[in-house]
Design a protein around this nucleic acid. Structure first.
Length: 831
RNA sequence: GCCCAGGUGGCGGAACUGGUAUACGCGUACGUCUCAGAAGCGUAUGUCGAAAGACUUGCGAGUUCGAGUCUCGCCCUGGGCACCA
């Protein structure tokens, strides 16, 4: 009988669905296992190979956990709000609602064809009111805690997408979606105060995450221990400072270099810039500030990093020595970090050094190396010994940090402080396709939150949503949407017209799966208690400093609000590697997107998914080619032939060893996501069984370990084998444990996925003999079959009887022998 | 520039705690089956060499009886950060 993959796969998909085999009973008593894969973004019309590469192995893992006896939840959904989805709709001349419905339907079909065990009864689609109602509810929780605030600030603006972007969405000064250069724009926008959680987000205790990802988040949060120092402004009849005790506060991590400060620098956006400038210099300063504002991020940080700036005419007093130092404005100082002002120490900071050289500012060394000399023509930036530093001279940098801080603290002119690179999360978007922000503005009452019972604030369908290039939110044009009543005074009010960043939708979706139909609450508290956090989370590493950071933040906020009982959402995290085509990322614009459909059509989904898993380690990814897929197709055919043919009444010892070795290895390798080596172990078993034959009992064990990888094939084999058993072909009749099978189906259909993962028997793993490797001076000179457990002496004796080994020893003097039991003997002779 | 990860046959990749380098698969060659081909089945396959043997895990050194694995220096590839004071 030939195996017909397509027909068989469709047959089982239908039977599984009819039997609700993969519908997880959340109230089941068994231990829960929440296996989650990052849900797809239906911005294109089809899943590509990268999705399969991600989803299929994760599904194999989930199936394995199920067979290990866990009550596994493996849900699926769609992250369907957002810019790319909207742009897709615009380019196809459709309403996003329509294009999303279409794309979701296609992707659902593809996902079902994969034969994965997604529980579709719990599907989540983020752009439907039943979902985004709760996204808005989440916003209100943040708002209530004072963690959502509105502020006018210079923000990142993508001129092509016509919307603002969060800091995380700017990559190399470009928009992470369309790669246009990002500019700055002053806008009043909504922010979430993620900075408040910076310290807690640095804690990864108990989290099984890739080191790389933790490091990336750590760098992104960017904690620095340092100090703030107050520099008093020197009054001048020529500027606005009139001796009122105004000061510039700078942030530094190198307070030990304070005596080397020869000027101070303000960021162009600093509030004191105009005040400190003298009348004479004011025009030049204003021109400089205006010119930096015109530059985008790329221009501002590139231009060969040539630093620019202007002197304000103002001076400040260095609190440690009373020195008067000039104040400059330069755009190499960032307004958004620290205090937006720095003390410049050109002798010990490369940036200050370059600036001082260019503008001929004094450079004074205050730190000398403990050993050696300072290199000519550059700043000495390491710690060392202080010099030219008054009473602090000769202290080490480490001592001076403490001492100088102490002194300034005593005088009220300085204090230790911590700075983070992390910025607050900007969540407003001037686009149509997103969840409306549930806020209204009333002339009388000001800003007011929509009350929870009035959610959702529905996104209206009839809106001209194409960006007009004026930077206005499309929702502003809908009078029906904008005009509303104030929740406080019931007077006329207008709605917030910006929508929320899609990352808000995806930062809590894992909570919704466990109670996706709940119309009263975002989720049931008890269910959350039982099912969360997520045990295994799989998705791309590109989300390290976006989705994964936001989801952690929101989880902590909900934890603090006592809405949930855990404060980390994902206990274990694994990233899949990227699949490229001819060395470059697959993208529609490059036209190198490979579709899985034709491969599924030709080979079936079992073969296709096994091929993806066999390519290499899951976390590596790789360049796509289909050259090797025939090898997997051959393997599947051979397994089929083996199972229906190649029968043996009794297994050989070698086969039992191979089989139990495979049971052990396959399980171990799945757990660490090394699917490639798990498959190779099964290939080796197949090769041996082809020669030796295999008993029915062993075939069943083999089918079970194959099941997570080739679910349809294994199910078909399982049913065939059990038929054989019933016909008395030599095995046991059907008597497999029926794990978690719904009562009404028990007795009608016993799926292989309701059987228990086999246990290997140690007894079969031990061989009676081993191959003793004999080396002479570290070079392999012979291999001898020997009995397990022989002594060193016996091994030496055995080795010397071999003529081909003796040749290398001959009459040479034997110095020593190294013996590794049951493995190797190395005889060292004089040369 | 800084921080991570990696570099193994013609190709994808294996290799436990330092102990047989190249498992498994692709490709290739030969054989078998066939009227023939495809598919299947079987054998071989790191390089040089007729063989004995020598050499071989990016390059160079070191530690060790023994190094793909550990240490130091360098080169290359991929990823992240990038004026964060």
């Amino acid at each position: 009988m030939r195996y017909e993959p397509r027909k068989t796969e469709q047959k089982w998909q239908k039977i599984w669905e009819e039997n609700c085999l993969y519908e997880t009973d959340l109230n089941d008593e068994r231990e829960k296992f929440y296996c989650l894969v990052m849900f797809p973004y239906p911005s294109g019309d089809k899943l590509h190979i990268g999705h399969w590469y991600n989803f299929a192995p994760t599904d194999s893992f989930a199936r394995y956990m199920r067979m290990k006896g866990m009550n596994v939840l493996e849900p699926m959904g769609f992250d369907s709000f957002g810019l790319p989805a909207e742009n897709y709709a615009i380019s196809h001349g459709m309403h996003p609602k329509k294009s999303i419905a279409h794309n979701v339907a296609t992707m659902e079909r593809q996902l079902k064809e994969m034969g994965s065990m997604y529980d579709w009864s719990k599907e989540v689609i983020t752009c439907v009111p039943e979902y985004y109602k709760w996204t808005q509810w989440m916003f209100l929780q943040l708002y209530k805690k004072g963690l959502a605030y509105r502020k006018n600030a210079p923000v990142n603006w993508c001129p092509s997408c016509q919307t603002v972007l969060a800091n995380e969405q700017v990559q190399d000064g470009t928009c992470d979606r369309c790669h246009s250069a990002v500019t700055k724009k002053d806008l009043t926008q909504w922010f979430f105060n993620i900075k408040k959680y910076a310290e807690r987000l640095l804690n990864f205790d108990g989290m099984d995450w890739p080191e790389k990802t933790k490091l990336m988040q750590e760098y992104w949060i960017g904690k620095s221990d340092g100090a703030e120092i107050d520099f008093e402004l020197v009054p001048d009849k020529d500027n606005e400072i009139r001796g009122t005790g105004e000061k510039i506060t700078v942030f530094t991590t190198r307070i030990d270099t304070l005596f080397g400060c020869t000027y101070a620098v303000l960021a162009p956006e600093h509030e004191l810039v105009a005040k400190i400038s003298t009348k004479k210099r004011l025009q030049e300063v204003n021109e400089y500030v205006a010119s930096t504002r015109r530059k985008n991020d790329i221009e501002r940080s590139s231009e060969e990093r040539e630093k620019t700036g202007v002197f304000t005419g103002g001076y400040v007093i260095n609190p440690v020595n009373g020195e008067k130092v000039p104040v400059w404005v330069a755009d190499y100082v960032l307004a958004s970090y620290g205090t937006g002002a720095v003390m410049a120490v050109p002798a010990h900071d490369t940036r200050d050094y370059a600036f001082a050289k260019k503008y001929k500012l004094p450079i004074r060394s205050v730190i000398k190396p403990r050993v050696g000399m300072v290199k000519e023509g550059e700043a000495f930036v390491e710690y060392g010994l202080l010099e030219n530093s008054g009473d602090f001279s000769d202290l080490t940098s480490e001592e001076a940090r403490v001492e100088i801080t102490k002194k300034l603290e005593g005088e009220g002119k300085g204090r230790t402080t911590i700075s983070y690179k992390l910025r607050d999360w900007l969540i407003s978007r001037q686009r149509y396709w997103g969840a409306p922000i549930p806020i209204v503005y009333c002339k009388k009452c000001g800003e007011a939150a929509v009350s929870e019972k009035d959610l959702p604030v529905v996104l209206p369908d009839e809106v001209d949503f194409e960006p007009k290039g004026d930077g206005k939110s499309p929702l502003a044009s809908s009078e029906e949407f904008v005009n509303t009543k104030c929740p406080k005074c019931k007077g006329p009010a207008t709605r917030e017209v910006d929508t929320m960043d899609t990352f808000m939708c995806s930062s809590w979706y894992f909570l919704r799966y466990i109670d996706s139909k709940n119309g009263e609450k975002p989720f049931d508290k008890n269910m959350a208690k039982k099912w969360l956090p997520v045990d295994m989370y799989v998705g791309g590493p590109e989300h390290a400093c976006m989705h994964l950071l936001y989801a952690r933040f929101l989880t902590k906020v909900l934890y603090d609000a006592k809405i949930i009982h855990f404060d980390e959402p994902f206990t274990r995290l694994v990233h899949q590697g990227m699949i490229t085509k001819d060395g470059s990322k697959m993208s529609k614009s490059k036209g190198n997107v490979v579709s899985p459909d034709s491969f599924v059509e030709k080979y079936g989904s079992d073969v296709f998914r096994m091929y993806l898993m066999f390519m290499g380690p899951f976390t590596d990814g790789g360049d796509w080619n289909d050259r090797g897929i025939t090898g997997i197709a051959r393997f599947a055919d051979r397994v089929w032939t083996l199972m229906l043919d190649k029968h043996a009444e009794k297994d050989t010892e070698a086969l039992l060893r191979e089989l139990h070795g495979a049971i052990k290895k396959v399980g171990e390798q799945i757990e660490v996501f090394h699917f490639n080596t798990a498959i190779s172990a099964m290939m080796e078993l197949t090769n041996l069984a082809y020669k030796d034959g295999m008993s029915l009992k062993s075939k069943k064990l083999f089918a079970q370990i194959l099941a997570p990888f080739a679910p349809h094939l294994a199910e078909e084999i399982w049913q065939e084998l059990n038929k054989d058993a019933q016909q008395g072909l030599g095995g046991n009749p059907v008597a497999e444990p029926r794990l978690g099978l719904k009562e009404e189906f028990a007795g009608t259909f016993n799926s292989i996925f309701n059987t228990e993962w086999p246990k290997y028997n140690k007894k079969y793993l031990q061989a009676a003999t081993f191959e003793l490797v004999v080396q002479v001076n570290g070079k392999v000179r012979g291999r001898i079959q020997a009995e397990m457990g022989i002594s060193k002496e016996e091994a030496i004796e055995l080795a010397l009887t071999q003529p081909n080994i003796a040749v290398f020893i001959k009459d040479k003097k034997r110095l020593k022998e190294i013996f590794v039991p049951d493995r190797l003997l190395n005889i060292v002779v004089a040369v």
